[in-house]
């Protein structure tokens, strides 16, 4: 459906073999990202967002993890068929990642500069000196003041915001980045810093012309940065639409619930509670074939227990998976 497709995930299933049994963390998930597009992946903690991100870069620990079925096409080639060596050439060069915790995501015993330089060295033949110069340039690009000096600093000498900028610099350490995956990049930061980092991310994305998979549960962040939004719940995608549609015309009750909570309040950071919906995410171990949201949904029907609904379309780019969707919003009610 998208012509210049950057990433296309089809019917992806990922599970973990734990001591208590098989956890089906991602079920039958399909996603698409166009070149240069920003897709926000939202949902409560534990619903499989990070697992999806790790599946794309094939960084799921196996065992206990297993990519059971599906395909992940990046610029036309299926990453799941790649050898580990081919994959390594993709990671950090075509697809790079930023993680949630800037405190723990940088190696404490190497300088920032050395860690960025390492990425250059991993993907192209160049001298250490050269790699270091390029690292300093990147630090300048992500607006770290005094980049020469900061390149020689260790992570613990930098503030959280600075560290996350350094992480972004590391993710950009490639001649032609295609996709950046940012897994809750601002969740661990102060609210004031969050906005700065997001703005930087959006600006760099434009400048480099790469696609962005932004994982978050902050709807404020989504509204500001995303082109499209995919909503996940308990391993399933439940709704997928352009950003305005999600905010103005949500069809899945869960999406509506997400919009009802206000994660920008500091107390909500890291673990949003759906106050507007009772209950919590069900145990993935005991989940049946029905809609996982059924037990918390105020619109649930008997059929919701039986099977998971197939995709329904509400317009050209808007799909949802619900037996008893919210009514479409009219223009008047939207205002």
């Amino acid at each position: 459906m998208i012509s210049n497709e950057l990433l296309k995930i089809d019917a992806l299933c990922v599970s973990f073999n734990t001591q208590r049994g098989k956890v089906r963390a991602v079920r039958n998930l399909s996603l698409g990202i166009a070149e240069g597009e920003t897709l926000a992946l939202v949902g409560e903690s534990g619903c499989g967002k990070s697992v999806t991100a790790h599946a794309i870069t094939r960084l799921i620990p196996m065992p206990p993890g297993l990519i059971e079925s599906g395909s992940i096409h990046f610029r036309g080639s299926n990453l799941l068929s790649f050898s580990e060596k081919q994959m390594r050439a993709i990671r950090g060069s075509r697809i790079s990642m930023i993680f949630q915790e800037p405190m723990t995501s940088l190696n404490p015993v190497f300088t920032i500069g050395a860690q960025i330089a390492e990425v250059f060295l991993a993907h192209s033949k160049m001298s250490k000196q050269n790699a270091h110069t390029k690292a300093v340039e990147l630090l300048k690009l992500v607006k770290i003041p005094d980049p020469e000096k900061r390149a020689k600093s260790y992570p613990h000498q930098l503030s959280g915001g600075m560290r996350q900028r350094a992480m972004i610099a590391m993710a950009l350490a490639s001649p032609n980045p295609g996709l950046m995956i940012a897994d809750e990049p601002t969740t661990a930061l102060d609210v004031t810093i969050q906005a700065q980092v997001l703005r930087l991310l959006a600006e760099l994305k434009e400048r480099v012309g790469m696609g962005l998979l932004l994982i978050t549960h902050d709807m404020g962040v989504v509204a500001e940065t995303a082109d499209r939004v995919a909503v996940m719940y308990a391993g399933r995608k439940v709704e997928d639409a352009p950003v305005e549609e999600i905010f103005t015309n949500p069809r899945h009750p869960y999406t509506l619930g997400l919009l009802g909570c206000q994660p920008s309040a500091p107390a909500n950071r890291g673990a949003p509670r759906l106050t507007s919906i009772g209950g919590s995410v069900p145990d993935l171990l005991t989940l049946g074939e029905g809609c996982p949201f059924e037990n918390r949904c105020n619109r649930a029907l008997p059929v919701c227990r039986e099977n998971f609904p197939s995709a329904a379309a509400a317009g050209s780019a808007h799909t949802y998976y619900c037996h008893n969707p919210e009514a479409p919003q009219t223009e008047e009610r939207r205002s």
Partner: peptide, 11 residues
């Protein structure tokens, strides 16, 4: 996490 970072960067 930093080991994951390094792997994700293709080291």
């Amino acid at each position: 996490d930093y080991v994951k970072t390094a792997r994700a960067a293709g080291v």
